[in-house]
């Protein structure tokens, strides 16, 4: 600051030049301050969803997760952008001590090999049929709407127009032996299926 004060005193005396020099210093100095946080880009829905999927694995228990020796497979249908983002996120990472792999799934016959299956809203096929096929397989199913939970899905990322809200269907997960950590249940909204009859 001493240097600055000296610079200011030796500056020409007209108010205008002093003002200009002032502004100049402010800009230059501000420009060299470190940013308080990384100045990152706007977060797109598909970016945050991908981060959520990766993060979620810390709060989910699969019945057979310790005994598996094959890679941990995250299948993605109907949202290639999320798949691409996930690929970047999981590169070099392990999930449940296993190598993690992202697969873009076109053919329903591949879904049983997944540990997680994400079905985006733009998926054109029959969601009911996919969920039916997964009966008896411990695959965590993720979707993007409450409708998805109604059909028997386990977790939904619901975009409220501002944030992503997680809804979980504990019941649907339990049926396949999948359980959620209590921390997740505190953050998430618990989906209660309407009792039939």
């Amino acid at each position: 600051m001493d240097f600055l004060t000296r610079m200011m005193t030796i500056a020409p005396k007209t108010p205008f030049t002093r003002g200009v020099i002032c502004i100049f210093y402010i800009l230059v100095l501000l420009g060299t301050f470190p940013c308080p946080r990384p100045c990152l880009a706007a977060f797109n829905l598909d970016q945050v969803e991908a981060a959520f999927i990766f993060n979620l694995t810390n709060f989910v228990r699969w019945p057979d997760q310790a005994t598996q020796d094959r890679p941990f497979v995250i299948g993605v249908m109907g949202n290639p952008q999320v798949a691409r983002n996930l690929q970047i996120i999981i590169s070099g990472e392990k999930i449940k001590g296993r190598e993690a792999v992202v697969k873009i799934i076109d053919d329903p016959s591949e879904i049983e090999d997944c540990d997680i299956l994400f079905i985006g809203n733009s998926f054109k096929g029959n969601v009911d049929e996919i969920l039916q096929l997964l009966r008896g397989h411990p695959v965590l199913t993720l979707g993007e709407s409450e409708e998805f939970l109604k059909k028997g899905g386990m977790v939904a990322f619901i975009f409220t127009g501002k944030r992503i809200q997680i809804q979980v269907s504990v019941e649907a997960a339990q049926q396949e032996g999948i359980s959620f950590n209590s921390k997740l249940l505190r953050i998430a909204k618990i989906y209660k299926p309407e009792r039939q009859r």
């Binding site: 706007a42 977060f43 797109n44 993060n55 501002k162 944030r163 992503i164 997680i166």
Partner: peptide, 9 residues
Amino acid sequence: LASLEVTTV
């Protein structure tokens, strides 16, 4: 993550 503002723009 849950508290982030998100855009689809």
